[in-house]
């Protein structure tokens, strides 16, 4: 389905995840972050978001463990930056699909 986020029409699934990562931009990220209750995105948030997009583009499967080992962010920081669902929320803000793993 189509949704207008930050003035741009994008394709999203029923949970609001972008279905085409190339339609993403930083204004969209900021709008989703507000919607998710994360608030203003800092450099630390954006570092995670950009890392997620890079990994996604490479086809890597993302887990909370791999994030903690990435060197980009520690597990604690990730939970502090994206409270209430660190991987789900950061993925949504990054405009990539919802992670499907259990770890």
């Amino acid at each position: 389905m189509k949704k207008t986020i930050a003035g741009t029409e994008v394709d999203v699934n029923e949970e609001g995840y972008l279905t085409d990562a190339s339609q993403w931009n930083e204004a969209i990220a900021a709008a989703i972050a507000t919607e998710e209750g994360i608030g203003a995105l800092t450099d630390a948030h954006m570092k995670v978001v950009r890392y997620l997009r890079e990994q996604q583009a490479k086809g890597a499967s993302l887990t909370i463990r791999s994030m903690g080992k990435s060197g980009v962010v520690t597990t604690k920081e990730l939970y502090d930056l994206f409270p209430g669902g660190p991987l789900k929320k950061s993925s949504k803000i990054a405009g990539i699909p919802k992670p499907v793993g259990c770890i």
Partner: peptide, 11 residues
Amino acid sequence: LIMANGARMEG
């Protein structure tokens, strides 16, 4: 362990 970690991931 898997269920506990999974819970935290869901908030």
